[in-house]
Simulated scan of single mutants.
Amino acid sequence: MKGSFKGFFAALLLGLGLSIGTSLFAQEVAPINVNTADAELLAELPGIGPSRAAAIIEERTSNGDFTDAQALTRVSGIGPATVENMQEQLTF
C-alpha cells in the first residue's frame, strides 16, 4: 500500500509538472511591429532595453520605417547578433 501511494503521488506530480510546462510553451507571443510599437513594447525584445527602445523610435522618426530586421542595425548598439536573437519576434 505504501509503495502504491508513492507511485500515485509521483505520477500526480509528474502530470502536474508536465501540464504546467506545456501550457507555458504553448503560449505564442505575437510579433512586435517595430514601426508602430511604443518604447515599452520594444523594450521587451531580447537585447533591447529602455534606451535602445528610445533609439529605435528616434531612428524611425528621423529616417523612416524599418523595412526588415537587418535595417535595425541603423540604430547604435544594435548589431547582427542582437538582430538574429530577436528577428523571429518582429514584424514590419
Rank of each mutant, 00 (worst) to 15 (best):
V34I: 10
G77I: 14
P46N: 12
E58F: 05
A39D: 05
L24W: 12
A55G: 09
S4P: 04
A81Y: 04
I48F: 05
R74P: 15
I57P: 01
A39L: 06
T67Y: 05
L45V: 08
A39Q: 12
F66Y: 08
A53H: 04
I32Q: 01
D65Q: 11
G79W: 07
N33F: 05
G47V: 12
V75I: 11
A54Q: 13
D65W: 09
F8M: 14
S51W: 04
A11G: 13
E88M: 04
A54F: 02
V34N: 00
I20G: 11
Q89W: 02
I57W: 04
L14T: 15
V75Y: 08
Q87C: 04
I32D: 00
A55S: 13
G3I: 07
A30E: 14
M86F: 05
T67S: 13
A11M: 15
L13H: 08
L24C: 10
Q70N: 03
A11W: 09
G3N: 05
E58Y: 08
D38P: 00
I78W: 10
A11E: 13
A37P: 00
S23K: 07
E44P: 00
I78T: 11
P31M: 02
K6N: 12
Q89V: 00
G64K: 07
S4A: 13
D65K: 14
A81M: 11
A53R: 02
F8C: 10
M86H: 12
N33G: 01
R74F: 10
L24V: 14
A10L: 15
G47Y: 14
A26C: 08
L42M: 06
A10I: 15
G64N: 12
M1P: 00
N85A: 12
K6W: 14
L90C: 04
M1H: 03
S76K: 11
T36N: 09
T91C: 02
T91M: 02
R52N: 10
F9W: 14
L16E: 06
L41V: 08
F5M: 05
T36Y: 03
T73W: 03
P80Q: 14
A10H: 05
T61R: 09
V34K: 00
T82E: 07
Q87G: 02
G49R: 15
A69T: 07
A53I: 02
S62Y: 04
N85E: 11
D38F: 01
E44L: 03
N63K: 11
T36H: 02
A54T: 07
G79K: 09
G21I: 11
